[in-house]
Amino acid sequence: MKLTIKNWTGVATWRWVANDDNCGICRMPFDGCCPDCKLPGDDCPLVWGQCSHCFHMHCIVKWLQSQPVNQQCPMCRQGWKFNNK
């Protein structure tokens, strides 16, 4: 072996991949954060429902808390279930 890699330090960036650009509740871009947060990133995560719709976690939690019965996805009106795959 003439040449061997001893160490390798990779650098990568991550961004959300959602099926939409904006959060359906607050209409802010997913690259940004929900209106209550100051900084995007790990502190303001996205969540997916089983219906495959995606929101800022803070937004959907707030929505669900305001719905005493029939907790539904605000986009498709199916019952909301977190997709924890």
Binding site: N7, T9, T13, W14
Partner: peptide, 13 residues
Amino acid sequence: GINFSIYVLQAGA
């Protein structure tokens, strides 16, 4: 086979 380490960064920051 190699020593691997990585930085994962937030795109916007």
